[in-house]
Nucleic acid binder design. Structure first.
Lengths: 189, 189
DNA sequence: GCGCTATGAGTCAAGGTGTCTCATAGAATG
DNA sequence: CATTCTATGAGACACCTTGACTCATAGCGC
């Protein structure tokens, strides 16, 4: 990416990104404008223009600085891996900035191609990791699935995502354990 | 509500609401401004101000004109009712305007109290209807649930919502049947 | 036909946006 | 340390949008 070593450049860049992320978190994506970001970052308005001529690209990069809860690479036993990863995902979705990025992504993806590409990438990674983990578990005789592996992401992540973004509550361990138990017949406890 | 019988008033009101809904669907909530709505509706800009002094209230009312997929009042047998209602909900979530309203609601609820109230109302209605239906089913001996009834909405609606808003695909009958089967032990087929 | 009123076109000030210039401070180089 | 380069901040500028107002007009109920 940009390898400009000038510390002034990097300082401004980081200050602007932080300010944009704060504004997104506090006031939503519409608050990420050149003027508001510049004031929050303590830099000149022209500086923001030089770094990001368009506000939507700044918003996109600011959103990218928030670590989204993707799943770690699968390990065995798969059931323990699932418990661990879904619990982590649920905890991450309780963080205000993660929830802000997730809902903003889902919403703006409907009208912005760049955001839609990020949404698709996010969905694909989650689905692929789950599919690969469950395929492995099946091959190892750990589980017999009750649904197509392509539905696993919706089945497992959907409830946690809904609980967080629509019901605004925490996805407890009971719900997570029920989900894992319901995805198939486990031979391991 | 407003019972002004003057047809001019009602005509303008409907034209403005339709235009706002179209703009929301085509360009997203940020496109619902007085100027754009007025042009789309074919009315004067001042007329939009007279009807809705603030754009966010216009957006809220325009969103309210899109019928959101709540569940019908529960009937028995509960399993058939669930299949029917969840299938309808999945179909509704495939409509572009329903998806636009749902994701806009989830997103703006984080920064707008009025929208958050609507989100909470929506979540409560779904959870209550499902809870009441499943309580009835349990009392009738139709099913033994494998999770607290308060988790039913996340468990059943979450995957459909995730499939639609994140994966941008249809929730097929296989997924829906699997969900219903997994929520407990059914004594009825 | 006659009041009444919502409308549309227009004006206007205020504020935000995008673009440019220029002096300056900070960084790299010798 | 001196010199050169460059990112910056402040400001100026035209442009557009927003919010608020006026007023003649057309459509409505009576």
């Amino acid at each position: 990416m940009n390898t400009d070593p000038d510390p002034r450049f990097q300082r401004s860049r980081q200050a602007i990104l932080s300010a944009a992320r704060e504004l997104l978190l506090e006031k939503g994506p519409v608050a990420v404008t050149h003027a508001q970001v510049a004031e929050r970052a303590g830099v000149g308005r022209a500086t923001v223009y030089r770094h990001w001529p368009r506000p939507d690209e700044l918003l996109a990069e600011a959103m990218a600085t928030v670590p989204m809860p993707l799943l770690d690479n699968p390990t065995v036993p798969t059931r323990q891996w699932l418990t661990r990863e879904l619990t982590t995902l649920a905890q991450q979705l309780e963080l205000a900035d993660v929830r802000a990025v997730a809902t903003t992504l889902a919403s703006t993806a409907l009208w912005d191609h760049q955001m839609d590409a990020r949404r698709a990438q996010f969905a694909t990674i989650l689905a692929d990791r789950l599919a690969s983990a469950l395929d492995t578990a099946h091959d190892r005789g750990e589980v017999t699935l009750t649904l197509p592996v392509r539905d696993a992401a919706a089945f497992l992540v959907g409830p946690i995502y809904y609980r967080s973004t629509i019901e605004h509550g925490p996805a407890g361990s009971t719900l997570i354990e029920t989900l894992i138990a319901a995805i198939g017949t486990w031979t391991t406890p």
